[in-house]
Amino acid sequence: MRVYSSAELAELCLQRWDVELLFRDIKTIMGMGILRCRTPAMVEEEILMHLIAYNAIRLLITEVKQAPRRISVKAGIQALWR
Rank of each mutant, 00 (worst) to 15 (best):
R38H: 11
E44K: 09
I52Q: 05
K74S: 10
I47L: 15
P68N: 06
T62C: 04
G31T: 07
L48I: 02
K27C: 01
V73M: 10
I61H: 07
K27M: 07
R58V: 01
L80Y: 09
L80C: 09
L35V: 09
I26A: 12
Q78A: 12
T62M: 09
T62D: 07
I29T: 14
W81G: 00
G33H: 01
H50I: 06
A79G: 01
V43C: 03
A41E: 15
P40T: 04
A79D: 08
H50C: 13
Q66M: 12
V73W: 11
A75W: 12
T28D: 08
A79R: 14
E44Q: 09
A56R: 12
C37D: 12
R36H: 14
H50M: 12
M32F: 13
A41M: 09
L59K: 10
V73R: 08
I57N: 06
G76L: 11
H50Y: 12
L60G: 12
M42P: 00
P40G: 04
K74Y: 13
L51C: 15
A41S: 10
A56H: 14
M30A: 05
L51K: 06
E45G: 05
K65C: 04
K65R: 13
T39M: 03
A67V: 14
M32G: 12
L48G: 02
E46L: 07
K65D: 07
E63K: 10
V43Q: 04
K74T: 03
A41R: 09
M30W: 10
L59A: 10
E46P: 06
I52W: 13
R82T: 06
R36Q: 14
K27G: 00
N55F: 09
Q66H: 10
V64I: 02
I34D: 05
E45P: 00
T62E: 11
E44L: 03
R82M: 06
L48M: 11
P68D: 06
I47P: 00
L48E: 10
I52V: 15
G33C: 01
K65Y: 07
W81V: 09
M49W: 07
R38C: 06
M49D: 09
I71L: 14
K27F: 00
R82A: 09
I71G: 05
M49G: 11
A75M: 13
G31N: 08
R82N: 05
C37Y: 07
R69C: 10
A56I: 14
T39P: 02
R69L: 14
Q78I: 11
L80G: 06
I26Y: 01
A56K: 12
R38Q: 11
T28Y: 13
I26T: 02
V73I: 15
M49H: 11
V73E: 03
A79N: 09
L35A: 07
R69I: 08
E46R: 10
V43S: 00
A56G: 08
K74V: 05
R58H: 02
M42D: 03
I57W: 04
E44M: 03
I77M: 14
L80Q: 03
A53I: 10
M49L: 15
L59N: 09
R36P: 00
Q78W: 04
I71P: 01
Q78F: 06
V73P: 02
I26M: 14
L80W: 11
T39N: 03
A79W: 14
M42Q: 08
M49S: 13
R36V: 05
L48D: 08
I52H: 11
A53D: 04
I47W: 02
R38F: 03
L51S: 11
L60K: 14
W81C: 03
T28E: 13
M30G: 02
C37N: 12
M32K: 04
